[in-house]
Design a protein around this nucleic acid. Structure first.
Lengths: 153, 153
DNA sequence: CAAGCAGCTTGCATTTTGCAAGTAGAATTA
DNA sequence: TAATTCTACTTGCAAAATGCAAGCTGCTTG
């Protein structure tokens, strides 16, 4: 079957740690994000304004198309992202973060801070790392408000 | 060769994103922690007072011994943990977090907060989630001080 | 000095990943 | 309106990572 559900039938079905190796919160996040690719999709949605399948494929880490399809489906199943038809082009889908996805922002920001400290070649701009130190909450709400703009492109 | 270095010869060799798929901070953390097991070892060191090889093997997620050996070695190479001989038993090694490892605490706490919000079966105690909301910094410094105690067992 | 423990290593079957190529439907172009 | 292109996948297969069991080695303990 080629058709896949555009809206999440299982939105009411919570994914929780009964389906996991343990009820540990660290393990819980690993069961969804514990691989080399999933968090890059979140990054693209959260920080890079990417919305379409082809946008994710074009990222510099070069995710392969079968892995991307698999990860997008899993993220939708678990309520982290939404998939809707692009009103401007009915052959395209728009992927976006749900509230559950947006709530990963503090995790993403702490990761960015840690990498900023320990990767001498990090591409995070100085002003961003500075803002992380001096006004994390302000930075976070700015990023969230940009996410809610009709289009960030 | 059976013998492996007990102290990190490459401590001066920084692992940075030149060896990675990109210079992105999110990708940087994935290159070390982007798998199903590594972060559980960090959790055991950070929150559970585990120190010995056998302690990690005994965790409820049941890591297998070859994977554990591989992950411990990688973490040591990358300067996230230290490996020393246990003075109480010269056939044992003690693993511990370096400063670089301890600096993952904010990431771990945000993960715990997120899972606390979205996993209805999380095993994180209510008081811990409460403390995360109300006094994150206080909670963090308490955890760090416990890490520095001579033995938390 | 024999037995046991702690920390691995090795071998092999299973699963996941990575790359290339193919497919289906909507939109665009000729 | 027929052919081509665009977008989002699916499929097949080789390569790599994982999982399990067994084995090995250097202490320590009886």
């Amino acid at each position: 079957m080629y058709f896949t559900s555009t809206f999440n039938d299982n939105a009411h079905m919570e994914f929780n740690s009964k389906d996991c190796r343990s009820n540990c919160p660290i393990n819980f996040i690993l069961e969804t994000f514990g691989d080399k690719w999933t968090l890059l999709v979140i990054r693209d949605l959260m920080f890079k304004g990417k919305r379409h399948y082809g946008d994710f494929l074009a990222s510099e880490e070069k995710i392969s198309t079968n892995i991307l399809a698999d990860r997008l489906q899993r993220l939708e199943e678990r309520g982290v992202i939404n998939k809707t038809i692009d009103p401007n082009n009915r052959s395209k889908f728009i992927y976006s973060l749900t509230q559950k996805g947006k709530d990963l922002l503090p995790v993403m920001l702490e990761i960015t801070a840690w990498s900023g400290r320990y990767d001498s070649l990090t591409n995070t701009p100085k002003w961003f790392l500075q803002a992380l130190k001096e006004d994390k909450a302000g930075l976070a709400s700015k990023i969230l408000s940009e996410l809610d703009e009709p289009s960030s492109k």
